[in-house]
Design a protein around this nucleic acid. Structure first.
Length: 270
DNA sequence: ATTCTATGTCGAA
DNA sequence: TCGACCTAGAATA
């Protein structure tokens, strides 16, 4: 379930489990075998997330392993070593703990210039202290592209995915098809602050919860719902169900190949 | 048993 | 705008 919070959480887990330790590195599936062998036995130095990308570094090695989970990748860290391999494991790290990477969009060794180039293509990440939201604003405020598409553009903002996109638009009452240039500065500032808060909470809890206390089912006299993405949300994947705030049926449309969910009543601002 | 779907991204048409 | 990538679990038959 990879949006930015998942990757920052993963970087934290990898550091906690492996930083400062010599790690066994292998590719049970074989597709990362040659690269994994080059890392084998080295001391893992760090792991860091930029948007939806994770970079793992090793002592005495200039190259870093770049991992991108894509739509269905997973990187599971569990205690203990020597566990039998189940299914397709692209990369396995072992040192007291075991980390199994499956189905990634990318798992590759990158040179320092390649890492810099990749990071250079990314917009500010709300989860990073060094993020500069002004860079995102400069792109947004002179764009005719709908704000819903801009939020998903990793060159504009790094780490926001389909759930945070839908939810931050809802929480700030912004109509998704509003052109970037029609979004006010005040609204953008509020959306950025909201993303920082929501995504930090996501890193803390490992799930995406966006519903404010006053709109929780209990407060609204409704039955609690169990969402299949593991959190509580206003509109994401709630097509046809009534809006938690105004009862209007939640709408869905496909925008740039992705499902966009919104409440046509609550979301009316630019 | 098979088809479908997904919180993502790239490159060709 | 579309298919490809590539995996696991859920839904359908």
């Amino acid at each position: 379930m990879p949006e930015g919070h998942t990757l920052h959480r993963l970087a934290d887990e990898l550091r906690t489990a492996f930083a400062g330790r010599a790690v066994a590195s292998s590719s049970p599936q074989g597709r990362f075998a040659a690269e994994a062998a080059r890392i084998d036995g080295r001391v893992l130095e760090g792991a860091e997330a930029w948007g939806k990308h994770v970079f793992v570094s090793f002592a005495d090695a200039p190259e870093q392993v770049h991992v991108h989970l894509g739509l269905y990748g997973s990187f599971l860290v569990t205690p203990g070593v020597g566990r039998p391999v189940v299914g397709q494991v692209r990369w396995r790290l072992e040192a007291a703990s075991t980390a199994d990477l499956r189905g990634p969009n990318a798992c590759e060794l990158l040179t320092p210039p390649e890492v810099d180039a990749l990071i250079g293509r990314l917009g500010p990440d709300p989860l990073r202290d060094d993020a500069d939201p002004e860079r995102a604003w400069r792109r947004i405020h002179r764009s005719s592209v709908p704000i819903a598409a801009l939020l998903m553009d990793q060159a504009v903002l790094a780490g926001v995915g389909n759930v945070y996109r839908a939810e931050v638009l809802f929480r700030n009452e912004v109509a998704p098809m509003t052109a970037g240039r029609r979004v006010t500065r005040k609204r953008w500032d509020a959306m950025w602050a909201d993303l920082v808060e929501l995504m930090r909470e996501g890193v803390r809890t490992g799930r995406i919860d966006t519903v404010r206390p006053e709109h929780e089912p209990e407060a609204m006299g409704r039955e609690p719902r169990a969402d299949d993405h593991g959190g509580e949300v206003y509109v994401y994947r709630r097509e046809g169900q009534s809006c938690l705030v105004c009862d209007t049926p939640v709408r869905r449309r496909v925008l740039a190949g992705r499902n966009l969910f919104w409440c046509p009543t609550c979301q009316h601002r630019g």
